[in-house]
Amino acid sequence: VNGKRPILVGETKENSALMIDATSLDGKLNIITGKKGTGKSHLSKLLITSLLQYGATVVVLDLNGEYAGLGITSDGKRNAYYDKVHVLTPGENFKVALSQLHLNELMSILIHALHLPGTSAREFRRIWQTLKQRGCLTLHDLGEAIRNWHCNQNVKDALFSRYYAMLNSGFFTDNMAEASRLEEALLKSRRDGGAVIINLKNTSTIDRQIVVEYLLGKLVEMLTSWRLKAVFLFAEEAHLYLRETYWDDIVTRMRHFGIFTTFITNQPDSIRESIYRQADNIFLFNFTNESDLEVVSRAARVDSETVKSIARELPPRHCLVLGKAVEDFPIVVKVRTLDVKTMGET
């Protein structure tokens, strides 16, 4: 595919180079799927490093700690992307101070990630506003305020259980010196191009949901205030941390704001059919499981039997590219090798 911003994906069976244009990913929804160990993360890394060359801002939800080595060659040396890769690990170098949060950001974490019921959420708003007026928005003050608040015991219990979930996550802090590096990393990426890797490797399910809720809220806020222009979001196994209502949000509202998503999964049925139908590009690696093949082939905009027969036979590191990136002409490509350090495992 000819274009001004070529990405060399690999070579076709005829040994000719397959180029796609970076603009065919810009503003688009992409899905990379295939069974475990076939080369999905490898292709993601290739696309990410290629986007970095063109100055893009990339955010990676890294479930297995696989992307931390993007700035390092396979033999441990710094590569061209070293200064552009920012790895943030929740509870370590990625924390948030309560005083930095808008109330609506925290409410969205409490309601969507921690499932705080409506009545308790109303009381929490009152507590927050009281603390804000006093100028003491700290974890300690929040705990004391809940303890001394006059309300129904069930409501108090619900508030306390969420408060302890916040404390135990290690994601919230009262120490401004260790508070969020996220904004800083995103603004640097906007200037020079960069990848912000959110390392979720040793993070529990609830904590992942807290972090992702905060991250997506922050991205939307920075995009709507024009502090960011656009973000390429790479989300590995998103069904493990993305709340139900976010799926449609990501492909409609968030795309409108400038979040362009690539979903990467070895469980194709974890992505709803409506999302596949809206996908601009699908990169399909080997599948042998019939039900997996069925899901993907139904979603592809070409003859489903053809897709199935090709996907069954694909060797590792080979994928079938479907969609706008190849002008809707399905092509099998052997993905080129990439000299970056392999970390983590899917």
Score class of each variant (00 low, 15 high):
G3A: 06
M19Y: 15
L29C: 13
T33V: 14
T33C: 14
G39M: 00
K45Y: 10
L52P: 05
G55A: 08
A56N: 09
A56F: 09
E66F: 03
G69A: 04
T73Q: 13
S74E: 04
D75P: 03
Y82K: 04
D83Q: 05
V87D: 02
T89M: 11
E92Q: 03
E92R: 14
L110A: 05
I111D: 06
H112G: 15
L137E: 07
Q153M: 12
Y163F: 03
A165R: 10
S169Y: 14
F171A: 15
T173I: 11
A179R: 11
R181W: 09
L182D: 05
L186C: 08
L187Q: 15
R190Y: 09
G193Q: 03
A195Q: 02
L200H: 10
K201W: 07
T205I: 13
V211G: 13
Y214A: 01
L216D: 12
L219R: 01
M222P: 09
K229A: 14
K229Q: 14
A230I: 11
T245L: 13
R253S: 12
R255W: 06
H256V: 08
F257G: 07
F263S: 07
I264D: 01
R272Q: 15
N281K: 12
N289G: 06
R301T: 13
S309P: 05
I310K: 14
E313I: 10
L320G: 00
L320C: 00
V321D: 01
D328Y: 14
I331N: 01
I331A: 02
R336C: 01
